[in-house]
């Protein structure tokens, strides 16, 4: 079996597994609309009496949050860290040690399959509410096309970074019995420095500059800002893409290192 065929099979199995939980994903997506309502109310009230905040009108800020939320469903490695952790703890990874399967590629295939299912299902409630929220949103004008071209590889790199961070957290199970607290702490950092709580450009300039050198910036904020016109300097966008690629490579190497070191500590037991 060729390498591509092998991981395509994993991908297809992952799609089937994810579809078993289609109602959960659909419910989660519907609940996320509540978050959107909260965002619309909060920022609508914050904008009352003024035309812009941080140089952006209300429509631009609302568009930022809508795009971010949709991208989260397509990109967030929501459960991969827990699943990897479980597979290590329960000894399920033992089967991969004796077979010609690369565990990283196996998990990456599952990540992409799950994200496609959750992403597509999340679009359904968004399409239902689009006629209501559409007039409140504003995407950048036609001259922004070059930024969309940068956004395409940025989205792929973002997905890779999301997955690799989750993978690295899963690897911590080799050293720690319980990794949930690490994951939740990382989620909180990611929520702030990834621009999920507020657009990062609203932070003081020095903090914004600092955040742009961290991997969290490239998980969600960077692709979202490219798509919604919050980054308007093409050279800054290309520089961001280069830093993002650097982080993707660094995290990949870290993941490989943790796997290699972790396996030295691992004891495969059971029949």
């Amino acid at each position: 079996m060729s390498v591509v065929a092998k991981y395509r099979q994993v991908f297809l199995t992952g799609i089937q597994t994810s579809l078993v939980y289609r109602w959960n994903f659909a419910i989660r997506a519907t609940f996320s609309l509540l978050h959107l309502v909260y965002i619309f109310i909060l920022w609508g009230a914050a904008y009352a009496g003024q035309t812009d905040i941080g140089g952006f009108p209300l429509a631009a800020t609302l568009t930022y949050f809508v795009v971010l939320l949709i991208l989260q469903f397509f990109l967030s490695a929501a459960n991969d860290d827990y699943e990897i952790s479980e597979e290590i703890r329960n000894g399920l990874i033992n089967q991969f040690l004796t077979k010609p399967i690369n565990y990283f590629a196996y998990r990456l295939s599952l990540y992409f399959s799950a994200r496609i299912v959750t992403g597509v299902l999340s679009l359904l409630p968004f399409l239902c509410i689009l006629p209501f929220i559409g007039p409140k949103l504003a995407l950048p004008a036609g001259e922004h096309l070059a930024f969309y071209a940068v956004a395409a590889p940025a989205l792929l790199l973002s997905a890779f970074i999301q997955f690799t961070i989750a993978y690295c957290f899963g690897m911590l199970t080799f050293w720690f019995l319980e990794i949930q607290s690490f994951i939740i702490l990382s989620l909180a950092v990611e929520a702030v420095l990834g621009g999920q709580i507020f657009p990062l450009d609203l932070m003081p300039p020095w903090l914004y500059q600092l955040s742009s050198w961290l991997p969290y910036y490239y998980q969600m904020y960077f692709p979202t800002a490219l798509l919604t016109g919050r980054i308007t300097d093409l050279s800054a966008a290309l520089q961001g893409l280069a830093i993002q690629a650097g982080w993707a490579l660094t995290l990949f190497l870290l993941a490989r290192y943790l796997w290699t070191r972790g396996l030295r500590r691992h004891t495969a037991v059971g029949g």
């Binding site: 939980y21 959960n24 419910i27 989660r28």
Partner: peptide
């Protein structure tokens, strides 16, 4: 709702979705 669904995966998100509104002033 888990009694009706196959799994509770993700549904606790509904709680966080709803309680976000508790951080909003009523007048908003």
């Amino acid at each position: 709702l888990v009694f009706w669904l196959q799994s509770a995966k993700g549904i606790e998100g509904g709680y966080f979705g709803l309680t976000e509104f508790s951080r909003l002033p009523r007048e908003a």
